[in-house]
C-alpha cells in the first residue's frame, strides 16, 4: 500500500459513513444527509482520480502553447462529468426533501418506523 493511496482510502471512509447514516438512522432528514455525504464522497473520489502533481487548471491562457499545456493540465473529463453529477444530486435532494415534507404533513413525524400505513 503506497502512501499515495491514502486520499482514496479517506474518501472511502467518508462513503461508508454516508452508508451508515442511510442504513442505521431512523430520521428521514438524517437518511437524506447520509445520501448527500455518499454523493460528496463519490464526487471527491472521481476528482482525485484526475489530479496531476504540479498540474494546472484546464484553462488555456494566452501565454502558453498546446504542447506544454497537454503535459501540465489536470484531466478535464472527470471534472465535466462531476459537474453534471453535482447538479443532478441537487435535483434528487430536492425531490427527497419534498417527499419528506409530505410525509411529515401526513404522519406528523420523521420517524420511518412509525410510517407504516402505505395507502393512497
Amino acid at each position: 500500500m503506497p502512501k499515495e493511496m491514502l486520499p482514496y482510502l479517506l474518501t472511502m471512509v467518508l462513503l461508508m459513513i454516508g452508508v451508515y447514516g442511510i442504513v442505521v438512522k431512523r430520521n428521514i432528514i438524517k437518511i437524506i444527509v447520509g445520501v448527500i455525504i455518499t454523493e460528496y464522497a463519490v464526487n471527491c473520489f472521481l476528482i482525485l482520480q484526475g489530479y496531476r502533481d504540479g498540474g494546472i487548471a484546464p484553462i488555456m491562457t494566452a501565454d502558453m502553447n498546446t504542447a506544454t499545456f497537454v503535459d501540465k493540465s489536470v484531466d478535464p473529463v472527470p471534472q465535466a462529468l462531476i459537474l453534471t453529477a453535482i447538479v443532478i444530486g441537487l435535483g434528487t435532494v430536492a425531490l427527497m426533501v419534498a417527499l419528506a415534507i409530505r410525509l411529515y404533513e401526513k404522519y406528523g413525524t420523521f420517524d420511518i418506523s412509525e410510517i407504516r400505513r402505505l395507502q393512497g
Binding site: A57, V74, Q79
Partner: peptide, 9 residues
C-alpha cells in the same frame, strides 16, 4: 485540486 469550475458549482 485545480478544479475551479467544480468549486463554484
Amino acid at each position: 485540486l485545480n478544479a475551479p469550475d467544480i468549486a463554484i458549482v
